[in-house]
């Protein structure tokens, strides 16, 4: 891949059954580009966790993916309630998800730790009442 490719996805809010469509679409595109399967899996899992978070907490948002020769960058932007204490939110097991989300198999407080685990770089910028931007990079 000599050039930089940018892809954008809208994540609809409120519809839990559709969460993951963007990650699924990206995964398909990366397969067609013959990206290494381990890299694809790491990118797909990190983005999927982010997508689930956007649906649960922020009524959806937008994801931009920038694929360059050296790395894949995912920028997840939402206009949700924001994260009050990012350090606390990063702790494995800490969750503010409502109980009904736990019955759906999420809200275990593993989303952000998993996103960090599978990426080479992760930065969260958040302002309460304004929204959150999560930037993740996976090196190629």
């Amino acid at each position: 891949m000599a050039n930089t490719i940018t892809m954008s996805y809208e994540v609809p809010g409120g519809d839990f059954t559709r969460a993951g469509e963007a990650s699924s679409s990206l995964k398909g595109s990366l397969k067609k580009m013959n990206v290494d399967p381990d890299i694809i899996r790491r990118v797909a899992i990190a983005m999927y966790e982010g997508e689930i978070n956007m649906v649960i907490h922020a009524n959806g948002g937008k994801i931009d993916v920038i694929i360059s020769p050296d790395e894949i960058e995912m920028i997840l932007t939402d206009e949700g309630p924001g994260i009050e204490d990012i350090e606390l939110a990063m702790q494995a097991g800490y969750s503010t998800a409502p109980d009904n989300i736990r019955t759906l198999g999420f809200g275990a407080g593993m989303g952000l730790p998993n996103m960090k685990k599978y990426t080479d770089e992760m930065k969260i910028e958040s302002q309460v009442g304004v929204g959150t931007t999560v930037r993740m990079k996976v090196k190629l």
């Binding site: 993951g20 699924s24 198999g105």
Partner: peptide, 11 residues
């Protein structure tokens, strides 16, 4: 639920 299948797809 559908997210079980999505999770498997990602993994």
């Amino acid at each position: 639920n559908l997210q079980v299948i999505r999770t498997c797809e990602m993994m």
